[in-house]
Amino acid sequence: MTDDSDITDGSSVVDPVDGRTPPAVAVVDAQSPGNVGTIARAMKNFGFEELLLVDPPELDPEGEAYGFAGHAREDVLPNADEIGFDHLVENYHTIGCTAVTNEDDRSHTRFPYSTPAELADRLPTVEAPTALVFGRERVGLTNEELARIDEICSIPANADYPVLNLGQAATITLYELRNLALGDATQLPDLERVRAPEPTIDRVYDQWADLLAEINHPEEKREKTMRMLRRVFGRADLTEREANTLLGLLRRATERPAEK
Rank of each mutant, 00 (worst) to 15 (best):
T101M: 05
V25G: 10
E137D: 10
P61T: 15
D75S: 04
A24Y: 07
L141I: 08
R106I: 09
G135P: 09
D150M: 04
Y113L: 10
N35A: 08
L146W: 07
E82T: 14
E137A: 06
D121L: 11
D75F: 03
R73M: 13
F48E: 03
R20N: 01
N35K: 07
E137N: 06
A69F: 11
V126H: 05
E118S: 13
V133I: 08
L59E: 14
R106S: 15
P22Q: 03
C97A: 15
V36M: 02
D15T: 07
G67P: 07
H71K: 12
V54K: 10
H71F: 06
D55V: 05
F48P: 00
R73S: 13
N91F: 01
A40V: 01
D105I: 04
L77F: 01
R148T: 13
N45M: 02
I95S: 02
R122M: 11
P124W: 08
T142A: 10
V133M: 09
E49Q: 12
E49T: 06
V139L: 12
I7F: 05
R20T: 06
P112G: 11
A65K: 13
Y92H: 03
S107W: 08
F111Y: 15
D60H: 13
R20D: 03
V139S: 14
N91E: 03
E144H: 07
L141V: 01
A128E: 13
E145S: 02
E118T: 09
E50W: 06
A147E: 15
D121W: 08
R136G: 06
L132E: 10
V14W: 04
A117C: 06
F68I: 15
D121Y: 10
P129E: 08
D6Q: 13
E137I: 02
L77S: 07
R73D: 13
C153N: 04
L52K: 03
A99I: 14
A120S: 09
L123R: 02
R41W: 03
D150H: 14
T125G: 04
F111W: 15
P16W: 04
P33C: 12
T98W: 12
V126M: 04
D81L: 04
N45E: 08
E118Q: 15
G135R: 06
T142M: 08
I149C: 01
F111M: 11
P78F: 08
N79D: 15
R20F: 01
R20Y: 00
V54W: 12
T142Y: 09
E90A: 13
